[in-house]
């Protein structure tokens, strides 16, 4: 499994992925590469297929054709849970909370390798108590870092939308991911907090070397932080480059003006 050397330059490669729903072509041959350790953005107008692409990469949908290669492993058609264990973690555009559970439990649930999660061992506390405590420490640390520790005891359905986004991120970080797929991590959050979130993501990226692919609409904020940008339109990648190149790219300007 560990074939990092085979493709050390790119952590994620999406090769000619196609997906259609009935008569609608959602992805029309998408090609995209994310450099190892980079923070890459994926932008485009609504309905351009960004979220569908995320769902294909994360295993929610199977592509009709094409390949997804993650960290040297072909993960095309893998189920989401297997992809998670491989080290690729995603968040959702509309946060999906375990809504009858508290924030703290939400974050704890995402931990990997807890022996208390088996039917056979869970009745015997002795077996899993030590690891559970470790996981709890880690959850508390992450939540403190993300500034959601004060809502830890709240029901996850009873917190603000911005906090839900952070809970999702915290869940993702519990597994020490190699790469994060973030679907609008700062949607519905005021600009100050959005800057804070992106600053935090950048730190994570720098310090822990977590690669990221981010969907975001607020380009003004986004472009201050990312290394590379892909632009999607009608199920295709129509432009790519550094944020600076993208801003000056007439195709991109056209798409965004045409949308408005």
């Amino acid at each position: 499994m560990n074939s990092n050397s085979r493709n050390s330059n790119y952590i994620l490669e999406v090769i000619d992925v196609r997906k259609r729903f009935g008569g609608i072509i959602a992805l029309d041959g998408v090609n995209l590469k994310v450099k190892r350790g980079s923070m890459t953005a994926l932008i485009g107008p609504n309905g351009s297929g960004k979220t569908t692409l995320f769902n294909v990469i994360a295993g929610v949908y199977k592509p009709d054709s094409g390949k997804v290669i993650f960290d040297g492993t072909d993960i095309t058609g893998w189920p989401p849970e297997k992809i998670y264990h491989r080290g690729l973690v995603r968040t959702f555009q509309v946060p999906r909370m375990f809504k009858a559970m508290t924030v703290f439990e939400n974050v704890l649930t995402a931990a990997k390798g807890n022996p208390g999660e088996r039917f056979s061992t869970s009745p015997l506390r002795k077996i899993w108590k030590a690891i559970e405590l470790k996981i709890a420490e880690k959850a508390v640390d992450i939540m403190e870092l993300l500034k959601i520790l004060h809502v830890a005891r709240n029901l996850s359905s009873a917190i603000s939308g911005g906090q839900m986004k952070l809970v999702e991120l915290a869940r993702g970080l519990m597994s020490d991911p190699i790469m994060l797929l973030l679907d609008e991590p700062a949607a519905g959050v005021n600009p100050t907090l959005a800057h804070e979130i992106f600053g935090f993501l950048r730190n994570l990226n720098k310090e822990q070397g977590i690669s990221m692919l981010i969907i975001e609409h607020r380009l003004d904020i986004l472009f201050d932080y990312v290394d590379y940008v892909y632009v999607m339109h009608r199920g295709k990648v129509v432009a790519e480059g550094t944020p600076k190149e993208i801003v000056e790219n007439p195709v991109v300007v056209d798409i965004y003006l045409g949308e408005a």
Partner: peptide
Amino acid sequence: SPLGRVLKAIRDDELAAKSVG
């Protein structure tokens, strides 16, 4: 136990539970 959390997570949102492995 941690198992209880997993089961409840599946009940509340199966896709999200899959997405956390």
